[in-house]
Amino acid sequence: MSLVLPSELVVDRFLPTVRAMLAERLADRGLTQQEIATHLGVTQAAVSQYVAGEGGGDERFRSDPETVATVDRIADGLESGEYDGYDALAELLSLIRTLTDRGPICELHEEAMPELQGVSCDLCVRGLDSELRAERDVLANVRSAARTLGATPGLVAYVPNVGTNVGMALPDPADVTDVAAIPGRIYAMGGRVEIPANPEFGASKHVATAVLAATSVDPGVRGAINVATDDALLEAATDHGLDSLEFDAEYEDRHDHLKRRFDEHGGVPRVAYHRGAFGIEPTTYVYGATALEAAETIASLLETTDS
């Protein structure tokens, strides 16, 4: 793991870009290179490079509307004399706070530390609280589940045409935004399972709805995976002593239909499936207390079917 503070990105990526942008704008307003150097706290040689377009910088900041507007405002203030160094600093500090909250600095931070994807802005803005810890734990669990699926022999044969996904809800979820899943779903390509991205909250309405239906009946069931329905898989579930339930493929609301069937069944089964209908692929949901538990259940079932 590479430990990177957002302040490092401010110094290494944001500040050089903003200085170059300010130098260019102040030069356009007629200030001399020495005057610009005094305002920016750099050497005249550095200003010469900035003005010549050799200062580089990160294009994300150069094209960010908030950054552009702030730099223009500072340049106007310094040129007119309405701003001094204190005013310019206040503007930049306010901009940094904005860009750290789901802005370019946040994006750079996630790239530098992939472990923060989905939570880094909250971490910087809110600090590490209990809710953020729960979100991080769920994301980590779904990542582990996805890796388990990717390494499961034979899974590719059970990936539906619409793709597979794995999801897990936060405790006491309210809606699909409280369920983490893989954006774009997990799909089969070239005889192998492809996982296109790290999990995010609200990334999948399909599997999230199935998870929410389960948690509404049993709060201890927070993970689910959808795969193609197959007799060999269902027989393996029976051999493993897993509770199974068939439900109707044609429904207006998946959440309400599944919840009703679970209530009628007396609880959430480990395996819930339908055999499809016109234009509807046969689908099986494998449930678990967590996403990883559901993934490990599928791996165990497929090991039996492959033997």
Rank of each mutant, 00 (worst) to 15 (best):
M1S: 14
S2D: 15
L5Q: 15
P6N: 13
L9M: 08
R13P: 06
T17K: 08
V18T: 04
V18E: 03
A23H: 06
A23G: 10
E24G: 11
D28F: 09
R29W: 13
Q34E: 11
Q34S: 13
E35S: 13
G41K: 08
G41F: 01
T43G: 14
A45F: 09
S48M: 04
Q49S: 15
Y50V: 07
V51K: 06
V51T: 08
A52R: 12
A52H: 05
E54T: 10
G55I: 09
D58H: 10
E59T: 13
F61Q: 05
D64E: 14
P65E: 06
T67Y: 06
V68C: 07
A69N: 11
R73H: 14
R73W: 14
D76R: 11
D76M: 05
Y83Q: 12
D84W: 12
D87I: 11
L89E: 14
L89P: 02
E91Q: 13
S94R: 15
L95T: 12
I96H: 09
I96T: 08
D101K: 10
C106P: 07
H109N: 03
A112M: 03
P114G: 04
D122M: 06
S130T: 09
A134I: 09
L139H: 03
A146P: 04
T152E: 01
P153H: 06
A157T: 11
N161H: 15
N165D: 05
G167F: 01
M168Y: 02
M168I: 07
A169W: 00
A169K: 00
P173D: 04
T177Q: 09
V179I: 12
V179R: 03
A180E: 04
G184C: 08
G184H: 06
R185S: 13
A188D: 10
G190S: 07
R192C: 05
E194P: 02
I195L: 05
A197V: 10
P199H: 00
F201M: 04
G202M: 07
G202R: 03
A203K: 10
K205S: 13
A210Y: 01
S216Q: 08
V217C: 05
P219C: 05
I225Q: 10
A228L: 13
L233C: 00
T238R: 15
E252W: 01
H255P: 00
L258N: 08
R260C: 10
F262H: 02
F262C: 00
E264L: 15
P269A: 05
V271E: 03
R275S: 11
G276F: 03
F278M: 14
G279H: 06
T283D: 08
G288N: 02
T290S: 08
E293L: 05
A294E: 11
A295P: 07
E296P: 12
E296M: 15
S300H: 09
L301K: 07
E303G: 15
S307R: 15
